[in-house]
Design a protein around this nucleic acid. Structure first.
Lengths: 228, 228
DNA sequence: AATTGACTCGTACGACGTACGAGTCAATCA
DNA sequence: TGATTGACTCGTACGTCGTACGAGTCAATT
């Protein structure tokens, strides 16, 4: 999270200087624009592709200008991560008695948000709790409470669901996606087939119905939750 | 896993050159020693603390000598990660009918291995499947099969357990550990208390009985697994 | 005695994050 | 009106990183 430094702009009073060019040609620099551009860049080139110099280029400024809005590169990561995790809420056509459906919706949306930006999965291991993340946790807890999860089990329940999302998403993002990867994994596995017969015959890495496995496993977990 | 390059030493025939100094003073360079030292360095200074130059210093060689044994820095990470995940197996006093106990043992050992080396959690998001990892997956699958998990549910069950371990371990390693961190989190949470009443009253981040939550959540999951 | 091949490493290059301080210009004040 | 301020921009420079390249060393082999 790493708050902005003391000298950072806080509430800027108003943008007064007009862009010298035609409007749209070069918008003024701003934290929002930096974060948005960082996300673009991360989507396009991955974690290692984000460089302060490249980011500045895209934004149309000198590299050091970014540091007026941001303490350091780490902050850019933090802000980009939390920005991508904004939750738009349950659909309003949802059946309000169906807590299970609510949980599934929240968690699938969460996972989908991250998979839309695979770099999130390598960023998460550090500092994950921005305001959007907290908001998601709050909604989830509330749903569980109304579903009847007892006070003594609430935290374990929350963390279990969190773990399911985290684990599944990180795994999905680091395997899969490219068929080449899968082919390579297949080769390695069948070459080592006699050492790992069970996972080989189960096609663990190849039958890549990740979405189905996510939903199924989530079902197991919800089935196992003790409700009062 | 990124195999070693073609020119790398394969099976070295034998170490023939004698160390010029007294033995123990400076052992010969070797892949094993490089990996072991990398783990030391990672334990001591974390992911960012591992540089090829520092590693070479510790190992007592020039930086470029490492590249005889290793393709690049990435491979050092891969090898260190998998090396730390070696599984010593179930204790032989274990009750052989107790599949649940077996699973719990495996997964707690897995989690403990990673928490002993917290940097593993930030490395995992990329390329996680070394031979030791595969071995663990194989054992886990076998246990689930004998426990009665049906063929159609096997993969989802494996991934769910994997997700639980991954999620819990990564989370545990990125929060917690330092009391200062927790104090900071507490402050932020209570400051935002009115926005997040449920997770605040549940002490989600503060009641940090991580081990208990891990075991409890694992229990939920195992309770929910469909056995034939 | 010459050759090979396993291994070591000094030097150098390009890229990175960012400290520093000098610049620009609108708004404010005298 | 002229001087001052403060918000913002950015060129330069430093130290550090991964690693390409090629020259070196030395034991074993021919």
């Amino acid at each position: 999270m790493a708050a902005k430094s003391g000298r950072a702009p806080g509430k800027r009073p108003q943008r007064t200087r007009m862009p010298s060019q035609a409007p749209g040609d070069a918008q003024p620099l701003s934290l929002e624009r930096i974060v948005a551009t960082a996300i673009e860049l991360l989507d396009a080139e991955g974690v290692d592709g984000l460089t302060m110099r490249k980011l500045a280029d895209r934004v149309g400024s000198g590299a050091m200008s970014l540091y007026w809005y941001v303490d350091n590169k780490e902050t850019v990561f933090d802000l980009a991560l939390d920005s991508v995790l904004e939750y738009r809420g349950l659909p309003q056509d949802a059946d309000r008695q169906d807590w299970r459906g609510d949980v599934v919706h929240m968690l699938e949306d969460w996972r989908a948000s991250m998979l839309r930006h695979p770099w999130t999965t390598s960023l998460l291991p550090r500092r994950a709790l921005g305001p959007n993340m907290l908001h998601r946790l709050e909604l989830l807890s509330r749903t569980l409470v109304t579903a009847g999860v007892g006070h003594a089990e609430l935290n374990a329940a929350i963390w279990s669901l969190w773990n399911h999302v985290m684990g599944a998403t990180i795994t999905r993002a680091s395997f899969g996606f490219s068929d080449d990867d899968m082919a390579a994994a297949q080769q390695r596995l069948t070459r080592l087939g006699e050492q790992y017969p069970t996972i080989e015959s189960a096609q663990l890495l190849l039958d890549s119905d990740w979405d189905g496995a996510f939903r199924k496993g989530l079902g197991f977990l919800l089935d196992g939750l003790p409700l009062r």
